[in-house]
Design a protein around this nucleic acid. Structure first.
Lengths: 213, 213
DNA sequence: GCATATCCTGACCGTATGGTCAAGATGAGA
DNA sequence: TCTCATCTTGACCATACGGTCAGGATATGC
């Protein structure tokens, strides 16, 4: 039963506990928002005494900031598919798939992000102004290139991006509403596939990247 | 300068103060979330002493519940355009316009709703299960009729509705992000029109309700 | 084995918050 | 004018929260 003896190294202890805390914090912040979350609840969920949290993260805000930053990183990474693609069907299609998968696997992260932005980004405003702005410009340039190459209609690239974010993140942020409207049950594998297919069909057809069925 | 004399009737006082409080509460709940909002801040914004709030609304939760209920009512009303329409171009087009207008004029309400749902609807779960479920079924039936009449492609009606909600409410809930990506300035009239047009074009073309430009 | 840096945690503290209350002010109705 | 119901509010309370700290436990490097 017992983890036969070998004591954990300091490094393993630190990494393990930080991961435990960040994971618990992400869930609690997602469920209760920054203001509604309590360090005690995060501590309980992580299985550590509250004082231990303050050993690794000096303040609630520092812990929150780390959570949001991690989410932001994952979130940007999901977009690599965009650049490598030869055209909108592959690029936007793969991006929708990737973001829907994140919404399914890590809904808490998406909710924390949404909550942060809804509250006027008190913690990560600098990221919005730098990294996200640059990322957006880059992706808009790609879309414009596709338009010029005649691979899709002359859609406003900015609003297209907003639409991609909105539709995919909706399945995480409003997951509870969707679940309730699904008779209280989470979406099945088939239903998730239907969701992805619907989003991809409407958008890709809507921007003139694919013809009628 | 002074409101020359006539004393306010009890009824006027009650209605006026309740409106003041509800308006302040909507803004504070939207900015800070339920947990982060304080009765003191709502009182200050309404220009009333805190104890007066508790005279009209016994608890913070009761006040919050009233705010969410009001939002829900406005929100459903915006959908009347749906049923009266002869087809998807008019019905969905007008619905998008109406919801975008709400996002523009009452972003706080949309944020409170989003926050409530993200936190698993602790206060209005019953509404989701009854009113919203029925409303959704009704609208899905309308969409199915349009499909059968050949007015649009055989799109999954449920996911189409989610897409409409997601895209339109995104402009309220993520308004701060959109503003930041717009150089820190709110969208101009023209930009709002472009947003509406983009959403309508992509969706209506995406579901096969209108042909290529 | 010893010294040191790191890790752990129960007990504690100041503050802010939701909510209460009692006493006074004010409009309604006769 | 007088009575009553409604409205107002400063002062107050109990609680819960974020954060601190001192002292003990544990791994590390020599």
């Amino acid at each position: 039963m017992a983890q036969s003896a070998r004591p954990l190294s300091k490094k393993e202890i630190r990494e393990g506990n930080e991961r435990l805390i960040l994971e618990a914090a992400e869930n609690v912040f997602a469920e209760a928002g920054f203001g509604g979350a309590t360090m005690q609840l995060i501590a309980d969920l992580a299985g550590l005494p509250k004082a231990n949290l303050h050993y690794y993260f000096p303040t609630k805000e520092a812990l929150y900031r780390q959570v949001v930053q991690n989410i932001f990183q994952d979130w940007l990474k999901a977009a690599d598919v965009f650049d490598a693609a030869p055209g909108p069907v592959e690029g936007i299609g793969a991006y929708i798939d990737a973001k829907m998968e994140i919404s399914r696997r890590h809904p808490a992260g998406s909710k924390v992000w949404a909550s942060e932005v809804m509250h006027r980004a008190p913690v990560i405003q600098d990221y919005l102004e730098t990294t996200l702005t640059e990322w957006t410009e880059g992706r808009m340039a790609v879309i414009r290139r596709w338009i010029e190459a005649g691979q899709m209609d002359a859609i406003n690239p900015r609003h297209l991006l907003y639409m991609l974010w909105a539709t995919t993140q909706h399945y995480a942020d409003f997951g509870h509403q969707i679940e309730t409207l699904n008779g209280g049950k989470p979406l099945s594998d088939a239903q998730w596939e239907a969701a992805k297919a619907s989003v991809k069909t409407i958008i890709l057809r809507g921007i003139g990247a694919i013809g009628n069925a």
